[in-house]
């Protein structure tokens, strides 16, 4: 039982990172209409930047903020220089994001190297609650994710910006006529999603080592989460992240570990085929061209 609870806590912290990348993708894909395959690389860049800054003697939590801002700026540059020109041809944007992902991955290898990087646990505490050892950093990761999820959820569903955003998704032309600067919203969503990826990367490297290739592994997970929950649906991304994180964590502990990745892929294919709008419903994403 204790082992089960421990597995559960561990899965929850892994799920947190998945949820963060999933929210980023669900917003960018579902609301801004951009399929950004380089999102996983954004996360990896955030992790690498954190590693570099912590290695240079910076406090982890300061580095986390800087990593978020850096990757947010990267997202801004990518949107302005690349994706802006392919808004009407999402397929071209998708292919371009593959190119961007390859560039970022190998630029990191060029600047650092291809070996895995890790930082020491920035908190270094272990809490024992009812016989269960909980690593404090893991609890902090879950807490930070919970705060971000809450902010994003209420931002999208309650604030006037969120309402304007959803208006521009459901009817772009009408929203423009109502005076909503749709393009600026697209940029804003892209930056926000990228920022979350940067924070996710920083949190990820506090949990386990990452390599320059981590991004391309986690991206498919991010798409899985956002599609399972329903595109553009923040609550859906949380549900998707929990489902996937728990399936992973528990199958690693109990099932056949070598098939861990296969479970999430199968779940994803089934949901995509049987319920393309996701478990909780969402937009169907941009029209394919």
């Amino acid at each position: 039982m204790d082992i089960f609870v421990q597995q559960l806590v561990n899965s929850l912290s892994v799920a947190s990172v998945t949820i963060l990348i999933g929210i980023g993708i669900t917003l960018i894909f579902g609301l801004a209409g951009i399929v950004n395959f380089a999102h996983g690389e954004f996360l990896m860049v955030g992790g690498m930047a954190t590693w570099f800054m912590v290695g240079a003697g910076m406090n982890f939590f300061v580095a986390l903020v800087f990593a978020g801002l850096l990757v947010g700026a990267l997202g801004f540059a990518a949107e302005r220089c690349l994706f802006r020109f392919t808004l009407n041809r999402p397929m071209n944007g998708f292919i371009m994001s593959i190119g961007l992902s390859v560039i970022l991955q190998h630029a990191i290898i060029r600047v650092f190297n291809e070996f895995q990087k890790s930082i020491t646990d920035p908190v270094g505490l272990v809490w024992t609650i009812g016989g269960v050892d909980i690593i404090a950093m893991r609890a902090i990761v879950v807490a930070i994710t919970a705060v971000i999820v809450a902010i994003t959820y209420f931002g999208i569903s309650r604030s006037r910006y969120g309402m304007a955003l959803r208006a521009s998704v459901s009817d772009r032309d009408t929203a423009e006529l109502m005076g909503i600067p749709v393009r600026r919203y697209v940029t804003g969503v892209f930056i926000y999603g990228s920022l979350l990826a940067g924070i996710g990367g920083a949190l990820m490297i506090s949990l386990f080592p990452i390599t320059p290739f981590t991004g391309s592994v986690i991206i498919i997970r991010g798409f899985a989460v956002s599609l399972i929950g329903g595109l553009g649906n923040v609550g859906g991304a949380v549900v998707g992240g929990l489902v996937l994180g728990l399936v992973d964590g528990l199958s690693a502990g109990y099932g056949y570990p070598e098939w861990t990745d296969a479970y999430s892929l199968v779940v994803m294919i089934l949901i995509l085929v049987l319920r393309p709008q996701g478990l909780l419903g969402g937009t169907l994403g941009p029209k394919a061209s």
């Binding site: 498919i220 199968v266 995509l272 393309p276």
Partner: peptide, 29 residues
């Protein structure tokens, strides 16, 4: 290709990507 009858462009792309990843896992195991 069967899912392409039900879902549109980008969803189908992601399904093909999943298939590819799954194929490698099956081969490896």
């Amino acid at each position: 290709g069967l899912p392409t009858l039900r879902v549109g462009g980008q969803h189908y792309i992601i399904i093909t990507f999943c298939f590819c990843a799954l194929f490698v896992i099956v081969l490896t195991n």
